[in-house]
Write a protein that binds this DNA or RNA. Sequence first.
DNA 1: AATGAATGAGTCTTCATTCAT
DNA 2: TATGAATGAAGACTCATTCAT
Lengths: 231, 231, 231, 231
Amino acid sequence: MAGEKNKEKLILDSAVALFTAKGFQATRMEDVSKKAGISKGLTYFYYKNKEDLFMALTKKAFDQFREEFREVLRSKGKNGIEMLVDLMTKLVNFAKEQPVYYQAVLNFLDVLKKYNHPESRKEIDPLILDSVHFHKLLEIHHEPIKLGVQMVSQGIKDGSIRPELQPEITFYTVWAMIIGFEKMSGPVGFEGKETKVSPDAWQPGFSKLMQDMLRGTIQASRPATVQTSLF
Amino acid sequence: MAGEKNKEKLILDSAVALFTAKGFQATRMEDVSKKAGISKGLTYFYYKNKEDLFMALTKKAFDQFREEFREVLRSKGKNGIEMLVDLMTKLVNFAKEQPVYYQAVLNFLDVLKKYNHPESRKEIDPLILDSVHFHKLLEIHHEPIKLGVQMVSQGIKDGSIRPELQPEITFYTVWAMIIGFEKMSGPVGFEGKETKVSPDAWQPGFSKLMQDMLRGTIQASRPATVQTSLF
Amino acid sequence: MAGEKNKEKLILDSAVALFTAKGFQATRMEDVSKKAGISKGLTYFYYKNKEDLFMALTKKAFDQFREEFREVLRSKGKNGIEMLVDLMTKLVNFAKEQPVYYQAVLNFLDVLKKYNHPESRKEIDPLILDSVHFHKLLEIHHEPIKLGVQMVSQGIKDGSIRPELQPEITFYTVWAMIIGFEKMSGPVGFEGKETKVSPDAWQPGFSKLMQDMLRGTIQASRPATVQTSLF
Amino acid sequence: MAGEKNKEKLILDSAVALFTAKGFQATRMEDVSKKAGISKGLTYFYYKNKEDLFMALTKKAFDQFREEFREVLRSKGKNGIEMLVDLMTKLVNFAKEQPVYYQAVLNFLDVLKKYNHPESRKEIDPLILDSVHFHKLLEIHHEPIKLGVQMVSQGIKDGSIRPELQPEITFYTVWAMIIGFEKMSGPVGFEGKETKVSPDAWQPGFSKLMQDMLRGTIQASRPATVQTSLF
DNA sequence: AATGAATGAGTCTTCATTCAT
DNA sequence: TATGAATGAAGACTCATTCAT
């Protein structure tokens, strides 16, 4: 894990590796330091405490998460619905490839929920509220949503999404679907006698349903192109 | 914490109250005992350890969760799509009224995901794998899904859901939407300058989108009935 | 473990079995009760506490231990030295067949040592001093020694042991040898590259040395009879 | 507990003092720390757990124990039998002056016995098997024996020990006698009406018997020199 | 005699965090 | 910047023992 990179990044990488293998709770600051090849004290020099470190990690995760949205919008020649399908694919991959980052984003969503309700805000660990990184997150956490709403608006403009839909509500719904899809791959994945649907088998159907929802007009089998593009 | 009920239930109730207020991690077994008005030892007499207690709680949560599904199916005079809308409402309420139970169910889903993948199964706390309650959960965790699939099948039969949909995949997708809806009420709820959508404002639109997805034929404003039934 | 025998014996047998397998410390009173097929409460009805139970066990062990001495003296036609050799064999077997009983006797010796010194008597667990069985042991613990001394005296009378030896001191020394022999079978038993002596290989030589010590006159190879009788 | 020495030693000294006064079981790690004047955490920094601490103590005890053997061999002008008598005196003193160290060595012998038998090895506390100190002990535990055997060989060469004796078996037997002597000073020491022999009164006779055993030729009263040197 | 639910004092151990150097 | 020895609060869990029935 050593090398030349700056220490801060070294620590973060070490944390990602350990959180992936053992989870946040089970990972000790000492292990993070050791894996980063530095001393415990130095880790605390760069990050005020464990929560701060985790928030820094979450910030990085969120940046990368947002980047997925940007990439979708950057890709030319796609209509709105294709962008949303693209986004779904990207996020599903993100969750698979960077599980800790994905979990960090989800966790941030939970904290955010508490933060948004005065009665539950006090349940949040003060160390989190202390963290600079948390406050940076508060400032940027709307961006992916804004980008997603743009995709829907774009889809409405280009006719790929039915015009009567309200962009914000629609995008929230799409995002909700994606998040739920990830969560559900747990019970779905079971190889028991009763289950016939694996996550991989589900995804095309899920994608089609999402598109149907957005498009309104049901299309028999033409969307094959879009579905294929998922893999 | 009252005096008559059997001790096991007393402990569980105490745990729910404390987990709600402070979370699983932050709650000490001693507090659970104290709140239940019994000794620490007795708590360990009924539950092998903290994880076992949590799994027992999860089992109860899951039972109640499943009961929501059953109630929907029991209610007469509803077509398939109405049942699914009903389910959504019930689950959203469940999450609001019994947050700990809802979180327990979600947490179980995460554990299940690990359990279903040999390479990650070893990451699960051994104490969880030890718990009888966990194994009971493994046995029944398919039931809500089965019930949900029945709803979709029913909807296809009664014509409220378009016939070309595959019941299982469709129900998974519906469930995913609902789960995601809950998770997303965090960022959505923020009263910031940029956000215009609150969870309450989102829900009707969300519900409508879900119905459109299932129904296929877009209906202008008639579904008001169903939407109203949400509150 | 059930059956008809009286409960007291049932409990003691259960304790022996468990102490053998897991040691005194690691054995829980609950396990003793369970294995005896009775309730915890009843165990405490018969034995005031864990130490009392152990002292009862020790008493039984000591009775059997003393019986070995008596048997030796009962056997006719043996001279003093043969009796001591016989005793050694018997005790070595006793330690092998009833390790818990043997350990209990040794443990009693340690307690006794503390008991005999005013400054260390207070280190003894008060529960032990409380036990009736402990006081019974105090009353009879000289008996094996007395019997052993008789054997030496007999040997002196019949000429098998050299006359200048003081019976008590001589017997203590013999007993010390035997106890040490048992303790030493630990390091001796190691199958390492350096060790050439196993306990089984040691015993004949040990026996011969003891006899030489007692007899005074060294006998080349005639004592074969006695040595063989060890196995 | 003073202030300069290195912490590791400080902890060990504290442990010795407490084990002496209260025994291993009854001594709490917290007390060890307190007596050493440091924090509980630091104790665990130097010793993985209580068993590890005890094994470290045992290692130190064994080193000192071995040193007694070396000292005997270093002393010039002594023949084999005098060395063995010297050894006996030294070990008896060792047991008296450093009871905890002596007990630790004996306890190690018990563990060793279990360790050497596959069927009982699993009865050993895993924490013991984990300890580095235990493994160091495994490596050196033969050394005192080797040194003792040298003494016998020397005695055979210089004629003080009869030539037909097998050095290893002979030394084991001597060691066994010494260990047993220590153990037996319990019942012997009792000032009851029946006992006429105190440990102090026993030791000269014991010593003489040991020498007779080794020498073969009985010597009337000349060995007074050697015996006197015991005190 | 017999039960087993109930008690609670007792301890080990962990680990985030600090600070002298 | 960098170290790692030192701290100590925190918490899970055990088990001998009691006692109402």
